[in-house]
Computed example of a mutant assay.
Amino acid sequence: MESRQLEEFLMQFVAAEQDFPFGPEVMVFKVKGKMFALLGERNGRYSVNLKCSPEDGEVLASQFSGISPGYHMNKRHWITVDLSHDVEVSMIKDLCERSYQLVVSKLKKSDREMLNPSV
């Protein structure tokens, strides 16, 4: 998956915002001020950091060489996915959706309701 494609995909989530709090090298994607993805380049390769449950992170890192504990993040709650490795596009998108939903689930009730008024 190309980094530009992933950037466009991440911006499709409800209330997604893009920010550069760590400098121009790392795009940070937030919902209601909370990070759910970080997209950047390291050593000529693009990767994305995504929020995950500790159990999922361990399993994913053991199954895919392109997934590792979160680079410069809490390694129990974040994973890093190398975009040029063995992880299929559909899996990357699914992991992005899970990360977004995990962050949304931890928001205040009023913020969650604003994002999904039908619930």
Rank of each mutant, 00 (worst) to 15 (best):
K93M: 10
V48P: 04
F9S: 10
G33A: 03
L10F: 01
L95C: 03
P24A: 14
E88D: 13
E55I: 07
A16Q: 11
H72R: 07
I92C: 09
V87Y: 04
E8F: 12
F22R: 01
Q18S: 12
K51L: 11
K51E: 12
S62L: 06
A16V: 15
Y46C: 12
K108C: 03
P24H: 07
S65Q: 09
D19C: 06
K93E: 15
D82Y: 07
L38D: 00
E58W: 01
V14K: 09
G23K: 01
L38W: 01
V31D: 11
V14E: 14
E41P: 09
D56W: 08
W78D: 05
L6N: 02
K30G: 05
Q101M: 11
W78L: 05
E8R: 12
F29I: 00
E25C: 05
E97R: 14
S118T: 04
V104T: 05
Q12T: 15
D56M: 09
V81L: 09
M35S: 05
R45W: 06
K108W: 01
D86F: 03
G66V: 11
W78V: 04
Y46P: 08
K108Y: 02
V81K: 00
S105P: 03
K93V: 07
D111V: 03
G33T: 02
D94P: 04
S3P: 15
R42N: 12
R98D: 14
V48K: 04
E97D: 15
C96F: 01
H72E: 04
P54V: 01
S65G: 05
D94A: 15
M1F: 13
F29Q: 00
F64A: 10
K34A: 06
E97H: 13
V59G: 11
Q18V: 13
K51D: 07
A61P: 07
D19L: 07
D19Q: 10
E97A: 14
Q101D: 11
H85K: 14
H72G: 07
S84Y: 11
C96P: 01
S68D: 03
D111N: 06
C96K: 01
